[in-house]
Structures are given as structure tokens and as C-alpha cells.
Design a protein around this nucleic acid. Structure first.
Lengths: 211, 211
DNA sequence: ATCAAGTCTGAAACTTGTTCTAGATTAGCG
DNA sequence: CGCTAATCTAGAACAAGTTTCAGACTTGAT
């Protein structure tokens, strides 16, 4: 558990030596195994030895690709998020107000997570448990989430105020998911929380009495 | 790691067989050791064997008092929160609007956490990582936090809307702390997020056009 | 004071994340 | 093709959370 983090981990996209085809395939197998095990039993069910076995890769290799279980699960989340962003793009929310559209988008994402609650558990727990050594990857997830929300708002040039609102919405989104996953809040409660926080958007939407 | 959770863990306050003096003392020693180790090196530095040794208690006993490391750290948080609520009570915030007062209170709490960032790390990470087996204890922490915020708002009978706002504020508070602890947000950024979310209070403060 | 039930201790064992090693394989290059 | 560095594999080893157990100690009731 010594997190002395050799600075060697590489993020998903940026300038790492390009992977060969077999390497790309390995990476994909690993992520697939991870998601599959997570879907079964959540965070605890994703055991590194099992991931390695399922993906036909030696344990040491698994650790070369993903330097920790948290890295692996955060990468799994990146993967799923990309997928979801694609899906959401196809059917843009139909609400009038930006707040409505964001709430609808997040509820749509929430419903998707409900279909695989164990997977959601694994990903979200990893995300919030991640320490500094995973910051770049977590940040990437955060940017992706921001992109989804801004998409829903339909904004080209968000004001700083609006970006703050988006940050708060993300905070609420993550934390509300946690309370749901740990059984301390109902689905209905999460819905209310999301709708409540989305009202912040209205607060920043119209700058009528402004310079 | 089998979390088959024997239903046996007892919460802090409710009807558990009252502890003898020596037991109370042991419990206190354990919590003290936990906080002390956490203050040094955060979550990772709180090692059960060390906690046991520091508090002069056998490992098995430690586990009898706190059925997991997470339980221990959440209990540590309860302890610290109580302390903080007491402190905050003494000097109520002086702002005009409820939103101001809440933001000021939270920033005060935040500054306290900054004084012991490692301790904050251990407690907050435990809190958000906790699974269902810790729900009662986490809920208690949540209630305590809610009480602090309502105190700052100065409300006797909060409306459901206001309670929703408080929930969202708590979400933001926890999540913002996480981003700060993992080095993805600055202190200034956390301040902005808190102030932003507190504006929600204004939204629910005046029900002028109401039945 | 004494006994039964419950608690505490010390130590070993078990689990799962992580690291390390020696030897096989593969990739890229001359 | 043949070489060299990088990568991969199998498996042992290590670290820290958790469980277990036999025996010593406390407690509460008689």
C-alpha cells in the first residue's frame, strides 16, 4: 500500500509511445474484464488477479497497463463515459430551459447507471477514493462530464459564473450518486437533488441588469 | 474482504449495552490514536495494527469496537464534527443573508480542516468510500452536518425546498473537499464552489408568490 | 468469595492489492 | 536473418485489512 507512485503512469490519450495492435487488444481485454467483473459484484468483485486471468494477461502486465486498481477502474469509467456521451449526443434533451435540459440529461445518465448498479458502484467509488496519483485520469473524467453538461446547456461561450454552476452540478452529481449507491438516498431523492442543483443554472442564465 | 456484514455493529449513541468505564476509556484511546495517526499521514497512515498498538489494545479488540477501518475513521469524523459544531456554535456567523452565513460557516469549517489536511483526508476519504455496512454511521455524520448548516441558516422550520437546498450544499461540500484533498482544486476554487451553491438558499428563501 | 458469561490479549492465519524476479517472447533494426 | 531492448509470463514474496483461536482477565449475580 505504499503509494510512493513512481512517475511512470501514462494517461489514456497524451503522448505515450503508441501501442502496437496486440497491446491495444490487451488493453481492451483488460478494460472489458474489469467492466464485466464490476457489473457482477461492484468494487470488491474487481480483483486484480481475476482481471488478469479473465483478460489473459499476467498480473505484472496488468500492473504495467494500469498501475493500480483505482487507475484501472477510473480508466473503465473513462471508457464508459465516452460511450455514454456518444449515446446522449444522439438524442439531445428536448427541454426549453437550460436547467431542464441538464437535469434531463443527468437523469438519463442516472437511469443508465441504474441498469448496472454494481458497475456504477465500482466506478464511482474508485473515482472518489482516488488520491493524487490518479489526478490526471480523474481530471479527464471530470472534463468529460463537464463537456456533457455544457452540451446539454447548449452553450458556446459559458461565463465564469456558469462554469461555477457546472462545477457545483458535478459535485452534486457525484455525491448524490454516492449516497444512492450506499443506500442512503432513494432514486427519487437523487432526482430531487439533481433538479434542485440545476436551478443554479437559471440564476446565471440571464444577465439582464449587467454592464 | 468478504463484506457479508454480520448485523452486529453498533452505532455510537443508540441503545447498545452501556460501556463500562474502562471500555469507554479504551474507545477514547482508540479514537485518539486514530486521529493522531491520521494527522500524520492521512488515510494510509491509519494502520489497524498501529492504531491497536498506540491505543494499547489488542487487534481483535480494536475490531470489536470498530468493525472496519472505515468504521473507525467515520467514528473519528463523528467525534471531530461534534467538537467542531461546539466551536462553531460559540461564534455564530455575522452575515445578513442566510446564504452568507452558511457560506461563512462552511468556510470556517474548511479552514479548520486545512490546519490538519491529513486528518481531513483520512476522514473524508473514509466517508465517501463507505459502503452500505457503514450507512448508519455515515448517516449520523450527515445529520450532524445538516444540523450545522441549519444552525447557520437560523431556521426553525425549514421548508422541503430549503431542505433540498441543504442536501445539495452538503453534496457540494463533500465533493469539493475531495477535489481539494486530491489536489485537483485550489482552496480558492473550493471557496467559489461553496459560495456558488449557497446561492441556492436565496432561491428558496422568500416565497412571496405563494399560496 | 465464587462461578458463568462476556471481554480482552497475543499470535497466527487468511485475503487481496502490490512488488519483484528470472526466464521466455516480441518488436524494431541493421 | 540475427541481435538487442523492451515487453510479457508465471510465480513467489510482501503489505495491510480482516478473521480466528486458545487462554487470561473482568464483570455481575449469587
Amino acid at each position: 500500500m505504499n503509494k510512493v507512485a513512481k512517475v511512470e503512469a501514462r494517461a489514456a490519450a497524451p503522448a505515450s509511445p503508441p501501442l502496437t495492435e496486440r497491446q491495444e487488444a490487451r488493453r481492451r481485454r483488460i478494460l472489458h474484464a474489469s467492466a464485466q467483473l464490476a457489473s457482477r459484484g461492484g468494487f470488491d468483485a474487481v480483483q486484480m488477479r481475476e482481471v488478469a486471468e479473465s483478460s489473459q494477461v499476467a498480473l505484472g502486465t496488468l500492473y504495467r497497463y494500469f498501475p493500480s486498481k483505482i487507475h484501472l477502474l477510473v480508466a473503465t469509467m473513462q471508457d464508459q463515459l465516452e460511450h455514454m456521451h456518444g449515446t446522449l449526443r444522439k438524442k439531445p434533451p428536448r427541454g426549453e430551459a437550460a436547467a431542464e435540459r441538464v437535469a434531463e440529461t443527468l437523469m438519463r445518465a442516472f437511469r443508465a447507471l441504474q441498469r448496472e448498479p454494481h458497475l456504477a458502484d465500482a466506478m464511482v467509488r474508485a473515482l472518489t477514493f482516488a488520491d493524487r496519483s490518479v489526478s490526471p485520469e480523474v481530471d479527464q473524467v471530470s472534463r468529460q462530464t463537464t463537456a456533457i453538461i455544457l452540451d446539454a446547456m447548449g452553450l458556446e461561450h459559458p461565463t465564469p459564473e456558469q462554469l461555477s454552476a457546472v462545477r457545483v452540478i458535478e459535485h452534486t452529481w457525484h455525491s448524490a450518486l454516492i449516497t444512492w449507491l450506499s443506500g442512503r438516498a432513494s432514486i427519487a431523492q437523487v432526482k430531487i437533488d439533481i433538479e434542485t442543483v440545476c436551478r443554479l443554472i437559471d440564476l446565471t442564465a440571464e444577465p439582464p441588469a449587467d454592464s
